[in-house]
Every structure is written in C-alpha cells, then in structure tokens.
Nucleic acid binder design. Structure first.
Length: 595
RNA sequence: CGGGGUGGGGCGCAGCUUGGUAGCGCGCUUCGUUCGGGACGAAGAGGUCGCAAGUUCAAAUCUUGUCACCCCGACCA
C-alpha cells in the first residue's frame, strides 16, 4: 500500500478551524481526515476513512470471535415498529423523522432494537434456535439538541450495535458476559484506556447495565471510583443510608422566626442568631432543604415532586432524571407554585408534604428524601409559613416521606456504597454501553419461542453498543500532542511516512525506492513525494498526520545515511541506506501492527 | 429550550463606534531564486460583506426583521 502525497486527496490546514474546541476535532480537521458537512455531520476523507476502517475491523473481528453474526439493516425505517414499542413518541425531538411522497412516516434509525427483534421473530420460533447474537456496524442518526466536539457528539455517527436473544435469564447472563468480554478485548486492542462503570439503563428499560468510559478531562460523563474498585456513573451511584436512630430522647420541634431566610446560607446565619445551638454553630448540613420539581411523563402528564435533602447538597438534575425516568424533571415554575398555595417558597417543610401528612381529602404532593434522611434524624427546615422555620423536626416522628430518591449530588470523598472507600470523581467519554434489556422489546413486538414443554415464552434480550466514530475521536484525544496526531501503529492510516526533502533527484529516487520496497513488503506507506514543498512543511505535516514511523531521506544521503524516527519522539536514528529497509521493517514489527 | 457570540474570497481575521464603493495573513496560479523545520521576490486568480426590508446622494458600516452557525448549561454511542 503506497499513498503518494503528490496525488493524495488531502489538504492540511495550518490554522485551527474556528469552530473546533477539543483536540480530536481540531486535529482531525486540520490533518484532513474529516470535513464538516452540516452541524454534527462529517465527511470522511481518505486518511480518516482508513483509520475508521481499521477501528471497524477490530470491532468486527471481536464480535465474530464472540459468536455474534453480522447483519445490516437499513438506516431508513418505517414508523410502525417504533410506534409499537412507544419509541416513536418517547424518543421525542431527537428522532430524525421524514415522510415519503405518500406522506407516510419514516425515521432515520437512532438504534435498531425494534428491527433486530422483528427479524428474529420473523425467522425463529423455537428455543432450539437460541441463543443467538446479531450485530451490525451502521450509521445512526440522532437529532441532538446540541451536537458538539466534532465526532464526539455528532448527529450522524457510526455505531456497532449488537443484540442477544435468549430463552431464559441464565442464557442472557451468559450472552451478556460474552459481549462484556468482547468489549474488553476490543478496547484493549484499540489501545484505548477504559473503565467499566455501573450505569443506569435509563429509558431503555432493563436491569444490569454497564458503561465503558474512556477517561479524559473533556468527557461529558462524570463517574466515580473508589480505591477498593467500585466504579459507577454518577447517575447510578447509590447512597449508603445510615442506621435509623432512636428518637426517644429527641426534644419536641420548635418553630422559630426566621425572616428573610429563603436560602440555606441565610437560614444558617439566622438560626445562629435566633436559636443558637449549645454545642456548635449551625451548619448547612443540619438543615433539610426541600426542592420542588415538576415531572413530565412521556404522555405529557405533569406532576410535582418535592425532593428533601441535607441543605449542604444540591440536587443533581441528571441523577434525579435517572431516578424518575422516563419522566423529565425541571425546577417548578411560578405556575406550579400558583396551583399549590401550600408550598411557601423558601419555607417549605415536610409537615405539609407527602401522603402521610396530607390533610383529609387533599391531594398530597409527592415527597421523596435523600437516603441520608433516615428515621430519627433531626432537622432544621421550613415551617410552611413565610418567615418561619422549625428546628428539631424528627424524621419518622414528625413526618414520614413517601420514600427515598437518589437525586443529591455526589461529591468527592463520599463513601462508596459497597464500603470500598471514599469516592473520587472523574470524567470520561462513553464509548460503549452494554445492558440487559430483558423482555421489554420482545414483549412489545411479540417475540416468543416455544420452550421444551411446548409453551410460549417471551425471549429475553441484551443490547450492546459501541460508538465507533466516537471511539476514533477518543483515540485521537488520547494520542496526540501539540504538533498533531500520533496514532497507534495498527490504527494509523499508514505505518511508515517516507519524507523526501530537497530538490536532488537522487534523493527523490532513493526515497521512491524505499517507499516502493516497503510497500512491496506489505507495509502501508505514506510517501511525501511533493515537489517544491519545503522540508519544514513536510515535517510539520508528518507530525500533524501522525503516522508512527517517519523516514527522512535528504541531505544525509550523500553520506549514505537516512533518518528513521518515531512520531512520538522516542527515537531518531541515522541508518545506512543499505540497512534502512531492514531497520524500518523491524521498527514497524516492534510497534505491533498486527495487534 | 435558557444564556453568550459570530456571519465577509478555500481557511483565520481587521474594517463597523465616526457611512464614501473591501483589506491583511495563510492557502491557490505563473516565473525566478531557495531546499533539514511551516522560504524569498515579482506578477496574478478569487468576495452577492448570511438574507430581506428600511434610512441615505451613498450602507460591510446605521435601523428593523429574519435565517444560519458556533460556544456555555439541561439529553445520548
């Protein structure tokens, strides 16, 4: 494989594109791998396409090795299957929708659960046909509210999605484990650092769910991990609840006047004035903050939810939404408060909330508390009257919430739920997500098989995704420096970049011979044979493009030597021309091209 | 959807406050010189200044409207 830069369809940019912020976006555009076609939609140029193909190949090989079989669905799909599972509605504005000439509804698939399920239903009807795992590498479409960071969050992207079909739960566990192993092998082969974190399955439904994250400061996902090995997406972190305490000796609650104490900070300051504690100053953590949210269900139903949590913590809306999925949550607005005059802004207390506290014949506002608010804990909180708070209000004695909810922010230093130590927070790019879908789609679409007893059983499914283009971007994030990209050898568009410098015909001829010989020996070669391009430009381009081994044929040729150096700067060596080929091939082999 | 910003040759930008008929760098073309770290000289090609309406003798510049795009927050591979 020999690509001559004199004719390669490539234009590198000297300056960063104005719209690119993150390194992968900047460099992939500058190096001529991709071009923006529309917001969140990119064209693949020859070099980029080569890298993409190599990433895809690894994914494909490991899927096949794990026993999955490749199929390929259309990206353009009819509405009906998505109507059947409710996703035509649930997916909302993120779904690309279009109509054909007969005004029939179509969509550009965001994922293909429905189609896989229907395909298996179409052809299989016995437990003896199972298990089976199918996959495809397909272009997916999501009309993201805000595409950004180039390939990291596009509206069109390449995804490998796989689905397993089993007759029983044990089978699903085995299929899930096989995919999980395959994912570990894939990301290892890609040379992409990853952490596996517990995840929420979100609106997709299902039980066990894990995400593969590539750790990086620019990642959009926040996850936690503990020294003892616990790792989870923040949305999935559970809060260890303290033991309930006895409230036998707790004093009765007292209402105190707290003018202008509509915020926790103000309340703490006021309490130190009007009701100082004997032991120490009041702290935000002594207060119970009650935050009102409006939940909107997919069917449009709107309902209020009050979340009670220690005053030193804020509500993490992402975690809240994960907890109330598929409903969406937003802070309650003026109109919501207008409908519930019992809610006194800034002075809301649990005595007026929840089923247990609701007055006769009155609608209760749902009240869920942070797991730290266990029975027996005493709080300073609102008294449901302007300018008044109550202190010493005891959970389980003076009020009973409707339940607990994981909605409070997770902070560094919080204990891991499994007791494995304090949590640290980090960011990552979600490059893979596997989860046990269970029977949701099979149920909705009627995928059943006959079991050994001749009885119909609903098939149970797993769903396994890898963002292929996103993984490529994550690789670019992980492998670059301020001069450009620096691909792992087995993913680079070529293994060797031969640069011919100078105007000497002998130099060009020698470089040509080396390039051709390498190519004949099976090495992928990028050959900078451009005339009238100065050495500086060629070197800069080589660094920008990121091919791992750079061979410079130039002024040293007069003394019979050429230079072999690595893109990562770890090595640069003068080699005799006669030994050059062997040296280069050895270097390529050492880089593990065949990983 | 909320907030901020930008629309001008292929790319990156100045010009707008104070209206006078579009400029700089890179890239591109030709010739010459140069040739191991983004060379130099000379001569060129290339622009409806997002769109629409308005004000004016005159609009990239002022006014109104509109569209698009980008960035920061709520969603996902």
């Amino acid at each position: 494989m020999l690509m001559r830069m004199s004719s390669l369809f490539l234009r590198t940019l000297r300056e960063d594109p104005a719209d690119a912020e993150v390194a992968s976006h900047r460099l992939l555009v500058r190096a001529g791998y991709i071009r923006r076609a529309a917001p969140g939609i990119y064209t693949w140029l020859p070099l980029g396409l080569r890298v993409l193909a190599k990433v895809e190949r690894i994914v494909r090989e490991e899927m096949v090795a794990a026993g999955a079989q490749e199929v390929h669905f259309p990206a353009l799909l009819p509405r009906e299957p998505y109507e059947a599972t409710g996703r035509w509605t649930e997916y909302g504005p993120n779904l690309f929708r279009l109509k054909d000439r007969k005004e029939a509804d179509y969509l550009l698939a965001p994922t293909h659960e429905e189609m896989f399920t229907l395909l298996v239903k179409d052809l299989y009807s016995s437990y003896k046909d199972l298990p089976v795992t199918l996959f495809q590498i397909q272009t997916k479409y999501r009309d993201e509210a805000r595409p950004r960071a180039g390939l990291l969050r596009g509206r069109e992207f390449v995804m490998k999605d796989a689905y397993s079909f089993d007759a029983d739960d044990a089978g699903l566990d085995a299929s899930y484990a096989a995919q999980r192993d395959a994912y570990e092998r894939i990301f290892t082969r890609l040379g992409l650092d990853y952490v596996i974190v517990a995840a929420t399955s979100g609106a997709m439904g299902g039980s066990r769910s894990e995400e593969f994250l590539s750790p990086t400061a620019i990642g959009e996902d926040t996850f936690v991990r503990s020294p003892g090995g616990y790792a989870a997406n923040v949305e999935a972190v559970t809060t260890p609840a303290p033991e309930p305490m006895s409230f036998a000796d707790a004093p009765a609650p007292t209402v105190v006047d707290t003018p202008d104490a509509g915020t926790i900070d103000a309340l703490v300051a006021v309490l130190d004035q009007v009701a100082p504690r004997a032991d120490r100053a009041w702290q935000a953590a002594d207060t119970l903050k009650n935050v009102v949210f409006a939940l909107t269900q997919p069917d449009g139903t709107r309902e209020l939810l009050v979340v009670g949590l220690p005053g030193d913590r804020d509500v993490d809306v992402k975690r809240l939404e994960a907890a109330v999925a598929p409903a969406e949550a937003e802070p309650a607005g003026d109109s919501d408060f207008a409908k519930h005059p019992g809610l006194v802004r800034g002075y809301i207390g649990p005595q007026a909330l929840g089923q247990a506290q609701a007055a006769e014949g009155q609608d209760a506002v749902r009240y869920l508390v942070d797991p730290r608010v266990v029975s027996g804990t005493a709080w300073a909180t609102g008294a449901n009257a302007d300018g008044k708070h109550v202190i010493g209000l005891v959970a389980g004695r003076d009020f009973t919430p409707d339940g607990t909810i994981e909605a409070a922010e997770v902070r560094a230093g919080d204990p891991a739920p499994d007791g494995s130590g304090p949590l640290e927070l980090a960011r990552g790019i979600e490059i893979g997500h596997i989860f046990q879908l269970g029977r949701k789609y099979a149920e909705a679409l009627g995928l059943k098989v006959l079991d050994v007893h001749g009885k119909q059983v609903v098939v149970t499914m797993g769903s396994y995704g890898i963002g292929v283009t996103r993984a490529l971007a994550a690789l670019a994030e992980a492998h670059h420096d301020d001069r450009g990209l620096a691909w792992p050898a087995h993913l680079a568009p070529a293994q060797v970049h031969v640069v011919a410098t100078g105007k000497d015909a002998a130099v060009l001829a020698a470089a040509e011979q080396i390039a051709v010989s390498l190519s004949d020996a099976g090495v992928e070669v990028l050959f900078d044979d451009r005339l009238k391009v100065s050495p500086g430009v060629k070197f800069a381009d080589a660094e920008l493009l990121g091919v791992p081994v750079v061979v410079v044929v130039g002024r040293g040729l007069a003394e019979g030597v050429i230079e072999v150096r690595s893109r990562d700067g770890s090595e640069a060596r003068q080699v005799g021309v006669d030994l050059a080929l062997a040296e280069i091939e050895q270097r390529v082999a050492a880089l593990g091209t065949q990983r």
